[in-house]
């Protein structure tokens, strides 16, 4: 099982490396969006605004990043995977790969965002925890939604209207937690947010793994 999972994850990396234009397009998307914000905002001093801007850019970048995960391969090749691999492992590999992809994207985003727009975060550890938990949830939700949208015509509008409402609980909790981190509030008041985020992440990835086998065969 682990061997199969390892091969599936390796396949995702190889596929990304073969289509480097998608990766570079994604990086360019983040940099361009931040630069547009930089030119229109200059410095953002207000912490809630800074935080909201950070997460909104991350949200749109990650929708673009994950949207292709079920659309880039042809139906025939998917059919081939289905005959050789367990559907739970297929979605598991995609979850892990997308989490890693979004996490590196988010860290890069944080670096460039801090450089151009400024970084008022006082408690960096907590902010990174919020970022990791939020990004993991984003990746899981968008992976399942991308599987659903790819079966239903696969346009990005559908992806957004299906994904954004179900993302809201996760996104709002992450935004609250990272705002607390930026304000440097004591950890005791943040525990409940971390617990809710952890529980949400577990529920979302469990649902994705349970529901995907029903989706994969047409």
């Amino acid at each position: 099982m682990w061997n199969e999972l390892r091969h599936l994850i390796r396949k995702e990396f190889l596929l990304e490396w073969k289509q480097r234009y998608a990766l570079s397009g994604l990086l360019l998307y983040v940099v361009t969006t931040i630069f547009v914000c930089y030119l229109s905002f200059k410095k953002v001093v207000d912490v809630p605004t800074w935080n909201a801007l950070f997460w909104i850019i991350l949200l749109f970048a990650s929708v673009n990043a994950v949207a292709k995960s079920f659309m880039q391969e042809s139906r025939h090749r998917n059919l081939y995977y289905y005959t050789v691999a367990d559907p739970k492992l297929v979605i598991g590999a995609k979850l892990i790969y997308n989490t890693l992809l979004l996490l590196s994207l988010a860290l890069l985003h944080l670096a460039i965002f801090s450089l151009l727009i400024g970084n008022p975060v006082q408690d960096m550890t907590l902010f990174l925890i919020a970022l990791f938990l939020g990004v993991f949830g984003l990746a899981s939700v968008m992976t399942l939604i991308s599987a659903i949208a790819s079966k239903a015509g696969a346009n990005s509008t559908l992806m957004a209207i299906l994904g954004f409402p179900v993302l809201m609980p996760l996104l709002l909790t992450s935004i609250r937690l990272s705002k607390n981190a930026a304000d440097g509030l004591v950890v005791a008041s943040n525990q409940q947010f971390i617990i809710v985020l952890l529980a949400l992440n577990i529920a979302i990835s469990a649902l994705a793994i349970i529901l995907f086998p029903y989706l994969w065969r047409e």
Partner: peptide, 19 residues
């Protein structure tokens, strides 16, 4: 196909709505 895909989304949406 519609019934199956919509069922998957419905289950997911219900859990998120409860949260």
């Amino acid at each position: 196909k519609r019934a199956k895909i919509a069922a998957v989304y419905n289950i997911f949406a219900y859990v998120m709505m409860l949260v």
